[in-house]
Design a protein around this nucleic acid. Structure first.
Lengths: 243, 243
DNA sequence: CGTGGAATTGAGACGAATCAAACTGAGTGG
DNA sequence: CCACTCAGTTTGATTCGTCTCAATTCCACG
């Protein structure tokens, strides 16, 4: 995670960004990537707690995360944060605002982060001349739809235990996809955020962590996490009852 | 619903379709809509139980629902159908398959329906020459993302009662948006499908229906439904405890 | 070393799932 | 026309899991 943290200070151009394959640059040629660079600005040094945008703000910018973790959430009637997602490097934020022209939730950094601000109107015009760029956006949105649906299934019937393990495996896969370890990583959110995200309460999350630890399936020390038995964890996430 | 049923027999062209505002045609000019018509074929007479596609099938077609109701679902390990969505006239199916090139779930008709089959590759090429078409697809996908997120919130914390009422109000809003009554309509799915969709079991759904009926909030006769007290129902959907 | 936020652990309450049984209504055939 | 079936639905009794409330411990920070 050191390297990611260092990234936060730098204004790296698209063509030098290690995340371009996850991001809008995708399969673009070097020349095309340069054009893409002209409709965005890099905003390094987003500090912990800083907001990218708020719910109901006028939409004009898509954000690409270069480093760090961003949390999206809503404020409920009782003042509680209903967390709608945790977003990692390479992911885009604000896509669901294109149709309504207003952001649907608040987005704040869970740690020191770095983002690219993509002015959507300029981007859109550029995309008219670059079919590959248009296609890449389409792919990313399709992918988000797919994952969002997966998420829905997950939360249908399963027990809190299964769902929480699914969450951990999901984070694991996402870290792995970014070149980090699949079994050892640092969660940048609090237990309480996980709970609100999963629609559970803190105590339940905590209990399940303890339980998994006693069973030797994970080792958790604060926010550091070590997944010890992936096979068994995968079983649990699929709803099999371990003994 | 009669009119919708009659539609199922007709091969209406895009330019004559009452749903074009909900669909890909969107804000296209008459000439452009005709071009759109050339990359799609209308498939009338999809019978109850017919499948549009199955999970893991190779993706090549986006489906637009012209009339009827389509159910998307997955088959779980134990053979049960995990229902992932109910889709009404004007909605597009298959968008989440663009990135992986494989459909993610099964889609079957809950009643006699009618769909447009849009060959995606041809569509995609056409879209390169028609920016407005590209934009319309973008808007639709953004909208789906937004609704999918809304759905997630819904299912976070709330009680079965709140969630079920939310589901009914969601159906109501969608019917209204299509020009039907917001308070009286026919649900084309079984109680058991609703249950599986909402991640509850049949008995719970049935009990809540009975309960709402006793309280005079709804009148249900089989699959026909009459929402009697919208104000109160909205309160319940937001999590307020009625007495 | 003390403070406050976060996490853990325990005991009891409540809601939804499960198991079991009865009811309804559409369709079938004698 | 009635008896039968069968899928779908409703209702009741019980069990199980998660939430709630309360108390304690842990840890980062000044």
């Amino acid at each position: 995670m050191k390297t990611a943290d260092e990234f936060c200070h730098l204004n790296v151009a698209c063509e030098d960004c290690g995340l371009s394959r996850l991001c809008l640059a995708g399969e673009l040629s070097q020349e095309e990537v340069k054009q893409l660079g002209q409709v965005m600005t890099c905003r390094a040094g987003v500090e912990k707690g800083d907001h990218l945008f708020h719910a109901n703000d006028q939409f004009d910018t898509i954000y690409a995360i270069r480093a760090g973790t961003i949390q999206s959430y809503l404020l409920m009637g009782d003042g509680q944060e209903q967390i709608t997602g945790f977003h990692l490097a390479g992911e885009l934020l604000g896509l669901e605002a294109i149709s309504s022209q207003h952001y649907l939730y608040h987005c704040k950094a869970l740690e020191r982060s770095s983002v690219c601000e993509i002015h959507f109107q300029s981007f859109s015009q550029l995309a008219h001349t670059l079919p590959k760029l248009q296609q890449q956006l389409l792919f990313i949105m399709s992918n988000e739809l797919a994952h969002s649906n997966q998420f829905n299934q997950l939360f249908g019937k399963q027990s809190a235990r299964s769902r929480l393990v699914s969450f951990l495996l999901n984070m694991s896969a996402r870290f792995q996809h970014r070149g980090f370890s699949a079994t050892q990583f640092h969660l940048s959110m609090r237990r309480c955020d996980i709970a609100h995200y999963m629609g559970m309460n803190i105590e339940t999350v905590s209990r399940i962590f303890s339980q998994l630890q006693q069973e030797g399936l994970i080792a958790a020390k604060g926010r550091y996490l070590h997944l010890l038995d992936m096979r068994q964890l995968k079983k649990i996430s699929l709803g099999f009852h371990s003994d």
